[in-house]
Design a protein around this nucleic acid. Sequence first.
DNA 1: CGGAAGATTTCT
DNA 2: GAAATCTTCCGA
Length: 196
Amino acid sequence: MKLQRDFYLGDTLEISKRLIGKVLVRNTPDGVTKGIIVEAESYIGPFDKAAHSYGNRKSERTAVQYGPGGFAYVYFIYGMYYCFNVVTGSEGKPECVLIRALEPLDGIELMKKRRHTENIRNLANGPGKLCNAMAIDRSIYGCDLCQNELYIEDCGFSPEIEVSKRINIDYADEAKDFMWRFTAKGNNYVSVKTKK
DNA sequence: CGGAAGATTTCT
DNA sequence: GAAATCTTCCGA
């Protein structure tokens, strides 16, 4: 069943944890693609030096984070890749969850075509890759996850969850040691930089 | 294999 | 000028 608005309005760390094992569903004119969320990280704006919204910074890019939870925050990075986040918390709180990896579940042929690879493990085991596989780009910035174009559903999976430090945020001083990364334990589709 | 560099938007 | 990244190219 599809997750409703109230799921996204609570505590960001709690939501991150509960998102592991949920299914991300993307509807496009080309077809439907689905993937189980196996890796996610929390970014809690004002207190988190790694967050785009640290210290309540506001810009055109981060604007949607300041709205209520349950919307898509998509940003462009390194000139080539998109990253997909779920906005969480109530209005005025710039908090979000970065979806880092998916286990492909449905529409796999379509994902292969978009990614130009036959290796299923390589389809969505990283933030930039999963956006490519799910056809996520600027056009769904601010998209309501309670609609049909893009949403998350609960299929009853509840994998064992592993907690670790976040990835590639060495510049964030003490924030880099926060245990705000959640992964499905032993899952093969978690992004490669898992070691440490 | 493993490491390093490059692509090139958005904000500081 | 550097980032919440990925791919390709090079040398062992």
